[in-house]
Simulated scan of single mutants.
Amino acid sequence: MPRPQGFTYATHPDGTVRITHAGHPATTLRGPRAQQFLDEVKTTDPQLVMARWTGNYKRGNERTARNHPRNRH
């Protein structure tokens, strides 16, 4: 599976973490979830962690979608 790309995150003074994908807001984490995310992103590949936390990761149907007649070019 290809590695996700384009995710960034920013921490704010109030403890909020904002995750963006390709410059667009993907999710905002606050409180204990934000701290859990920051702990996890230190120990694992940040791109994979952010993809998982935002729900924006490969679902296994990409090949089927690519082969659908409306997606053929």
Rank of each mutant, 00 (worst) to 15 (best):
residue 21 H to C: 10
residue 67 N to L: 15
residue 21 H to G: 01
residue 51 A to R: 04
residue 47 Q to K: 05
residue 16 T to W: 06
residue 11 T to Q: 14
residue 54 T to G: 04
residue 56 N to H: 14
residue 24 H to A: 13
residue 37 F to M: 02
residue 38 L to W: 00
residue 33 R to K: 12
residue 20 T to M: 09
residue 62 E to H: 05
residue 67 N to W: 14
residue 63 R to I: 03
residue 31 G to R: 05
residue 58 K to F: 13
residue 16 T to P: 05
residue 4 P to R: 08
residue 11 T to M: 07
residue 7 F to R: 04
residue 51 A to P: 08
residue 18 R to P: 04
residue 22 A to C: 10
residue 18 R to T: 12
residue 17 V to G: 00
residue 37 F to V: 01
residue 51 A to F: 03
residue 25 P to R: 06
residue 64 T to L: 10
residue 6 G to Y: 02
residue 60 G to S: 05
residue 13 P to E: 13
residue 9 Y to Q: 00
residue 42 K to Y: 13
residue 39 D to G: 11
residue 4 P to N: 07
residue 9 Y to D: 03
residue 6 G to Q: 05
residue 38 L to S: 01
residue 63 R to H: 09
residue 38 L to P: 00
residue 5 Q to C: 09
residue 42 K to E: 15
residue 24 H to K: 15
residue 47 Q to W: 10
residue 59 R to K: 15
residue 16 T to G: 10
residue 44 T to K: 12
residue 40 E to I: 03
residue 34 A to W: 06
residue 63 R to Y: 10
residue 48 L to A: 11
residue 72 R to L: 11
residue 21 H to S: 07
residue 31 G to M: 00
residue 62 E to Y: 08
residue 53 W to R: 01
residue 6 G to A: 11
residue 41 V to W: 01
residue 69 P to C: 01
residue 64 T to H: 12
residue 23 G to F: 07
residue 37 F to A: 02
residue 47 Q to T: 05
residue 50 M to Y: 08
residue 23 G to W: 02
residue 38 L to N: 00
residue 32 P to L: 13
residue 35 Q to A: 15
residue 64 T to A: 11
residue 34 A to P: 03
residue 25 P to W: 05
residue 48 L to S: 09
residue 52 R to H: 15
residue 13 P to R: 14
residue 11 T to K: 15
residue 64 T to G: 07
residue 27 T to W: 00
residue 63 R to K: 12
residue 28 T to I: 11
residue 62 E to N: 10
residue 10 A to Q: 15
residue 3 R to L: 11
residue 52 R to S: 10
residue 31 G to P: 00
residue 19 I to E: 00
residue 30 R to C: 04
residue 59 R to P: 03
residue 50 M to G: 01
residue 48 L to I: 13
residue 15 G to T: 08
residue 28 T to P: 01
residue 31 G to H: 07
residue 73 H to Q: 14
residue 24 H to V: 15
residue 44 T to P: 00
residue 4 P to I: 02
